[in-house]
Design a protein around this nucleic acid. Structure first.
Lengths: 263, 263
DNA sequence: ACTCATTGTTCAATATATAGAATAACATTC
DNA sequence: GAATGTTATTCTATATATTGAACAATGAGT
């Protein structure tokens, strides 16, 4: 018998529930831009106010949360930045991916991303390169997306351990500008499995073409799921003729990256 | 009677010690680039291995820490990035500071930083602008420095609530390439208090001149300590004649920022 | 191949973090 | 200006997270 509240589940399951609560508080404070009071946070997360207060105080002591004594409001603090910087610095994928991403972005005049894949759940943007700064397509580093959506989703579906049919419920819950049919999508997933590249032609965002190629942390020989992916985002109409070239460039860069990460 | 171990103190003082432990683990994993095992982490932080394991599992569940089942090693995960992005997005200082920082960096051909001040303890770089990408002076976003060092340190000392004499022990513990004498430093602090700008001419890093101007979150009228600062970093020899102009530009931008943040 | 020394992990007793009510300090409204 | 709805905060009993020892599981060294 499981609770409807995901946070409550995490708290119950863990032997260190304070950490789950702390993470939830941090995420909430991140989502809301504005500072929040103790009660507001507790109410939102279904926490006991006193417990919430202790969590906040601990987070303030660690400089992950800033406290304004005047307004008695809490907000995210710069400590999170220090952690993020450390992570960015030591993830080989980012260092190795930045070069190829820059090259492809410049060559084709579009935006490229490096993303980390978290199973079938979601992906996070960890590297980015933009050629033309006037057109700010895409997103920022740290953004999250559902795993199975867009071109990256087809890559993930193509190389995940599960049977495609099992992905149906997940597929049905996705949001697209112009959702593809299940049959079309399955065919595109198969194609991605064979070619090592996937294309989303205006489905996820109308008029925008997304190309993605999977990257394996432990060599492309592994039958397991890819750990990362390279993504290119461009105006569909603008890269008609170049699409094949882009696909090959991205796939080639992804293969090369997989080999480098294998060592 | 206080322990010699700062983490232990934090754990004892808090009503949510798991959070202090979790933060310590995250910072340790950040400092070491490479993944670590449970025992290594526990030993390093003076934690009980079993407790450490539970902390790690909770952090893995929150996607703040990545776990490799094969090697049984833990490392920072991308979740920290999501938090950092949220923070950067909603801190007014960064948004407002980026423009002036870009302008000054371009105009004088050097590197500019926006930093957040954490009392007399340390500062964190939260914004940055580089003009010439070939010369990579300076640091990255998220870097920490001791509060009282370099030009920023003089600003902080100038406007902190404490008496200058009380800062002596902190001053003595700083590391400089060419440390100034206590008397010289005090004079420079006084000058910073009067002019609203501070200069470090090759003391912190030989040959490198650093200029800093304090920014107040709640208006420059406050007698309290500044919350942020604008910093410019350049090769000393290269900006000889422009130093006065740079000081005025930085001080002016800092004043303007303080006013904007006051609202 | 067999120690030996590590490692990661489980388990039960106890110190303690948490929940919930009570308190205090505001605002806001009447 | 009293009253009412907030808010943040303290307090204490109890459910429980933490501890330290015991347990596997791995690998190194002889």
């Amino acid at each position: 018998m499981s609770s409807a509240d995901p946070l409550e589940d995490a708290v119950r399951a863990s032997k260190a529930p304070a950490i789950a609560r702390a993470a939830a508080v941090l995420r909430l404070l991140g989502k809301r831009g504005s500072p929040m009071g103790v009660q507001a946070i507790a109410r939102e997360l279904g926490l006991v106010p006193s417990t919430c207060l202790y969590v906040l105080r601990a987070l303030v002591a660690e400089e992950l949360v800033a406290f304004d004594p005047d307004t008695k409001r809490y907000a995210l603090d710069a400590g999170v930045l220090t952690l993020a910087r450390a992570w960015l610095k030591r993830d080989q994928f980012n260092d190795l991916a930045q070069g190829p991403l820059d090259r492809i972005a410049r060559e084709f005049g579009l935006t490229t991303l490096g993303v980390q894949i978290f199973g079938l759940d979601h992906i996070i943007v960890t590297a980015m390169s933009q050629s033309s700064q006037n057109f700010q397509l895409s997103t920022q580093i740290g953004s999250r997306f559902p795993a199975l959506v867009s071109a990256t989703g087809r890559c993930i579906a193509a190389f995940c351990d599960q049977d495609i049919a099992d992905l149906r419920p997940r597929f049905d819950s996705l949001r697209w500008d112009e959702a593809p049919s299940w049959a079309d999508w399955c065919a595109q997933v198969c194609e991605a499995r064979e070619t090592g590249v996937a294309v989303d032609a205006g489905h996820y965002i109308s008029g925008v073409t997304v190309v993605a190629a999977p990257v394996w942390k432990n060599g492309a020989d592994a039958t397991g799921a890819p750990s990362h992916a390279l993504v290119a985002i461009g105006i569909g109409a603008a890269l008609r003729g170049e699409l094949e070239g882009l696909k090959q460039a991205l796939a080639g860069a992804a293969r090369s990256l997989s080999e480098q990460l294998a060592g």
